[in-house]
Write a protein that binds this DNA or RNA. Structure first.
Lengths: 146, 146
DNA sequence: TTAATTTTGGACAAAAGAGTCTGATTAACG
DNA sequence: CGTTAATCAGACTCTTTTGTCCAAAATTAA
């Protein structure tokens, strides 16, 4: 199992941040993204199509076609991507799986998890893909296998 | 998908903390646990058997049989249970799914996630099921549907 | 000893997640 | 116009996870 997000969501996060490295409006093909990131072609295709339908990306068919961010990179956060692929249930679900866990009826780690969850939320919201692209251009940020 | 742990692991966490409510050495049947917690009988059976093989529980067949903690509740932490069912990969995996993410080669949220992960780890290690049982006996801690 | 009640073990089924394949559509370029 | 290169759509397969079923073994109590 993946840690916190589904595989598909991880791929989406990786791919969108990769697109953010390109200059605004430049189209990037699925082929390029999957090669650089080492993820399955057709699976990512579906994922990017889904992000396009949700309005986070734009796409263009034909030669010189591909995908690009639909808005300035500074307006897209990691949270937007997670929201589009996995949904945001993690923001209100009990980490121990109790269906009726709440402030009135807390599980053993309710408050602690609430604070952890808030940190995760902040981690996703406070990072827009423009900042990430800036970070990734630094030499010490090279997570893809190029 | 569940939040952080597999369904089976959530069930295990719920069940073991339920067993911790009983007095030391008292046997509790699968039937009772699944009824109180509203989780599938045969599925939990397998889970408890697995915890028994791993040494966290003891079991006894026959009428008046069932399961009990194999050691004092204060010696069992949530982490032990997670370790036995899901494993501890979450302690060293990249949250964005980059296979080669590391301190030398960090992803965009590497440090932030490291601190969140440490908090999760502490949350699991610092809670033993004896404390949890004590908490659950208070009136405001009633997470099962009894 | 017999009946009842429980865990144990293994096989099986269903559902969800991940990944693949093929053909259609679209657009750039010669 | 025809070729080529890309997305799009949908069906399909494979794997993992979740859940179910049944018979055997063990233990208690009558």
């Amino acid at each position: 199992m993946s840690v916190l997000f589904s595989r598909q969501c991880e791929y989406a996060l990786q791919a969108v941040t990769y697109l953010a490295l390109k200059k605004e409006g430049e189209m990037t093909s699925i082929k390029e993204v999957t090669r650089k990131l080492g993820i399955p072609y057709h699976f990512l295709a579906k994922t990017l199509q889904s992000l396009t339908r949700k309005g986070l990306l734009v796409s263009l068919k034909g030669p010189a076609g591909g995908f690009a961010l639909s808005m300035p990179a500074k307006d897209i956060t990691l949270f937007h991507i997670v929201e589009a692929i996995d949904g945001v249930d993690f923001t209100n679900q009990c980490v121990l799986g109790f269906p009726d866990c709440s402030g009135k009826n807390p599980c053993a780690v309710h408050e602690k998890w609430a604070s952890v969850r808030d940190e995760i939320y902040a981690m996703l919201v406070n990072k827009n893909v423009s900042q990430i692209a800036r970070d990734m251009r630094k030499p010490e940020y090279r997570s893809s296998s190029e």
